[in-house]
Write a protein that binds this DNA or RNA. Sequence first.
DNA 1: CATGAATGAGATTTCATTCAT
DNA 2: GATGAATGAAATCTCATTCAT
Lengths: 187, 187, 187, 187
Amino acid sequence: MLDKRKEILSAALRLFAESGFHGTPTSKIAREAGVANGTLFHYFATKDELIVALYIDIKERLACHIEEHAADDGSLKGRLKEQFLNALYWALDHSDEFRFIQQFVSSPYPALVPHEQIEMHTRKHTQLLQKAIEDGKIKSLPVDYIFMLINSVIMGLHGYLDSNDFSKSTQHELINETFELLWDMLR
Amino acid sequence: MLDKRKEILSAALRLFAESGFHGTPTSKIAREAGVANGTLFHYFATKDELIVALYIDIKERLACHIEEHAADDGSLKGRLKEQFLNALYWALDHSDEFRFIQQFVSSPYPALVPHEQIEMHTRKHTQLLQKAIEDGKIKSLPVDYIFMLINSVIMGLHGYLDSNDFSKSTQHELINETFELLWDMLR
Amino acid sequence: MLDKRKEILSAALRLFAESGFHGTPTSKIAREAGVANGTLFHYFATKDELIVALYIDIKERLACHIEEHAADDGSLKGRLKEQFLNALYWALDHSDEFRFIQQFVSSPYPALVPHEQIEMHTRKHTQLLQKAIEDGKIKSLPVDYIFMLINSVIMGLHGYLDSNDFSKSTQHELINETFELLWDMLR
Amino acid sequence: MLDKRKEILSAALRLFAESGFHGTPTSKIAREAGVANGTLFHYFATKDELIVALYIDIKERLACHIEEHAADDGSLKGRLKEQFLNALYWALDHSDEFRFIQQFVSSPYPALVPHEQIEMHTRKHTQLLQKAIEDGKIKSLPVDYIFMLINSVIMGLHGYLDSNDFSKSTQHELINETFELLWDMLR
DNA sequence: CATGAATGAGATTTCATTCAT
DNA sequence: GATGAATGAAATCTCATTCAT
């Protein structure tokens, strides 16, 4: 085994998505990760710390993904759309991660995350929006308000696609249409 | 005490919103409800059953609220707006209920709710949308898709209002504006 | 319902035989007997009292059965055989009762039964043996020793017949043969 | 402490014999064994599992005892007698074990013991009987039938000796005489 | 670093029993 | 007598965490 820390995070993610934070004992995580019970506590002092670390880990991976796939050329609308699509495709491909995040944000855990950590990740997304507002491309509304609207729609659309059983192409169509709706709304 | 069952549900709601399902022992719920430990299990065979019962209870109360405050006269847009406002004001006035629901839906519990129960509550809301589509008032898209979009925005906006500290009038303005954005988007 | 006390005893017997004393809650007994939870405690102050009452009840019914079916005429051997057969057939026809008794005697409950109660029932059986010894029909050994031997064989044979699946006639044959073996041994 | 598992089994045996399975809380067993409450469940997943494990443990120890003390030379009768005496003396010296076994077999627990486990232990005893039948030393009856008869008498005699207060020599005499009675019966 | 036996506080649940109606 | 909601002590079992090896 190359990296026990990663094995633990990966096992934890799988199990948390399946049974929730409290339905998943640390012993089960350790077993699933192929390490001893106590080893988990070498890497994460407490279960809470593991959960928060997993949250940060996922957020970073998501940010990387969006950054990597950002088509830097093109119009502002095109770049925003790119982000929107990337976020959704990532979510569809990483439903464990997505369920974990949802669980996390509607739990008392976020209080344990250093505030700047959260800022940092959202900053990246809001920068583009900020520019779009300043350029008059979209309505002049508070950035975080717009960010919230877009985010909500992403969450909702993901849930919708996840619980229905659409074909890849139907999914693609719906995602595109939804972005257009959003764009019309914000323009 | 008039109704111990209600006392238990009410105490559970308060504590779940505060500390989460698993951060709240049944013993604390019983104490807070002013009943004996065993009494809780007289009304709810398991803690899980209590959680599901609470979910259904809240959903019913929300549905009643929206129904009661539905302005039956007026345009379709007016009636939809009424529902939108009602949902949001109810959520703002019942933040415990709202946090509970959020926790609930992003947990493994929904699997325990009989499917028809869920249908029943959404049906009421979708009927009006269905009519709006048929009358050509809003875009011809799947009802549940539109319902999802509206819902997402309600959830997001609630979270936004909840975490900022706006005055009542600013809140009102934001809610109205948001509805108008939504309406433009769907029209 | 004619006699709630009897209904309770009857339900208790069935359930005790099935799940043991401690695997059977009083609430289940009450439900099965078709009476309210608290009613059980009108008739039996405690669960222990119910168990002991049931033991005495069964012992009395067994004694009655043996007495009723005692062929008073005939040889001593014939009368003993009659008792042996009656005991076994009763046991085979009343396996719940038999399992209850077995459970009872290998539990701490017998300590709660007034000693004379026990004496009374055995007296009836030992009287005939006493006479047989005095008449020189069977070996001159302590009565309670012989009683123990016979009893043991009855218990063992019952278990044997119960766990195998013999036809009625094979059962009958085995019972007869066993008595003859016993008789030869004691003669 | 050398072996916590053994300490737990030993404490459980003592307490079960004294107060029955259900009169003995696991917490008391742990305390008596000098281990923490949770340690018990490290070795035995449930209380039931502990009870079954204890049963198997005792059965094995009994089988070992009988095997070890088997006088391999001598006549068939002599060897059978040896087994009979060994079983009885073991039972008299291990009354806790014996009471436990009695309790166990007249409870719903035997259903939890894998069938082959039971077979295995009885096999050893029945082999000698099988041989005796084949050699024409004892009556030609089913082996398990004869085994049952002998067993019943052992159980009964043990109870008899246990509840009376005989001297060692009287005990010895009774055991010998009983074997002779049995032998005459089976011969 | 890694292990996994050991811990013990605490959680859920059961159930004999009481008592107001 | 009969009821069944209410009780609360106690039982079983879980699990995050520690620590000697």
